[in-house]
C-alpha cells in the first residue's frame, strides 16, 4: 500500500522550493501590465482619453528611444539583462530548503537543519562541559561545523567533543549525510 515512490516524491518536493512565491509575483506583475495594455487599447479604439499614454504615443516613444544616447541605452539594457539572468538562475537552481530526509518502511521524515544544529550544539556542550552559548554550530549541505569558544585559562576537551559529535552524526540516517568538524576559536571567554 505504502509505495516508496510516493515517499520519494514527497521528500523531493519538501526538500526543494516550489518557486511559487516568485512565480506568483511575476504573474501578478504580468497581469498588471497586460491589464493596462488592454484598457489602453479599448480606450483608444473607442476614442476615449487615455489613462497614462495611448498605444500610439507609447509605440512612438519606444521607437524614438532607439535614437537615445548610447550610455543610457547600454545602462538600461544591462540592468534589464541582469534581472533576466537572476531570474534564469532562480528558475534553474535546485533551491534547497535546508532540510534533510530519512525514510523507514513505515514513514518518511523530514528534519530541519536547524533542529540538527541545535541538537549537536547540545551534545557538544554536554561532552565538552562548556556553556551552551560557547558552542556555535553551522549545518551546511554535507558538513557540520562546530565552533567552540573555550573559557579563558581552561582547555577545552576537543577530542571528546569531536567523538560525541561523530557519535551523534553516525546515529543519523539522513540524506544528504553529514560530516562533523570541531574547531576551537582563538579567543576565550571570561567565565
Amino acid at each position: 500500500m505504502t509505495t516508496p515512490g510516493l515517499y520519494r516524491r514527497v521528500v523531493r518536493r519538501e526538500t526543494h522550493s516550489s518557486r511559487s512565491g516568485i512565480a506568483i509575483v511575476l504573474a501578478v506583475l504580468l497581469i498588471l501590465v497586460f491589464a493596462w495594455i488592454g484598457v489602453e487599447a479599448v480606450l483608444a479604439a473607442l476614442k476615449q482619453p487615455a489613462l497614462l499614454a495611448s498605444p500610439k504615443d507609447a509605440a512612438v516613444t519606444i521607437l524614438d528611444a532607439a535614437s537615445a544616447p548610447v550610455g543610457l541605452l547600454t545602462a538600461a539594457g544591462a540592468v534589464v539583462a541582469v534581472i533576466g539572468i537572476i531570474l534564469i538562475i532562480v528558475a534553474l537552481a535546485p533551491g534547497r530548503r535546508g532540510r534533510r530526509s530519512a525514510s523507514s518502511d513505515r514513514t518518511a521524515a523530514l528534519v530541519d537543519d536547524r533542529v540538527i544544529a541545535q541538537s549537536i550544539a547540545g551534545t557538544a556542550s554536554y561532552a565538552g562541559d562548556i556553556e551552551p552559548d560557547q558552542v556555535k554550530v553551522t549545518v551546511g549541505k554535507r558538513s557540520v561545523d562546530v565552533d567552540v569558544t573555550r573559557t579563558s585559562g581552561r582547555t577545552a576537551d576537543l577530542r571528546s567533543i569531536q567523538e560525541a559529535v561523530d557519535d551523534e552524526l553516525s546515529s543519523y540516517d539522513y540524506s544528504p549525510s553529514l560530516r562533523g568538524k570541531v574547531r576551537l576559536s582563538k579567543e576565550g571567554t571570561v567565565a
Binding site: R13, S18, L73, A78, V80, I83
Partner: peptide, 28 residues
C-alpha cells in the same frame, strides 16, 4: 503545485528580459 510550470514561467520571463536587455545594450 505544478513546479515545472512555476520554473518555466520564471525562466521564460528571465529569458525575455535577458534577450531584450542584451540586444538593447549590445546594439547601442
Amino acid at each position: 503545485t505544478n513546479r515545472f510550470l512555476n520554473r518555466l514561467l520564471v525562466f521564460v520571463v528571465g529569458l525575455v528580459l535577458l534577450l531584450a536587455g542584451g540586444a538593447v545594450a549590445a546594439g547601442a
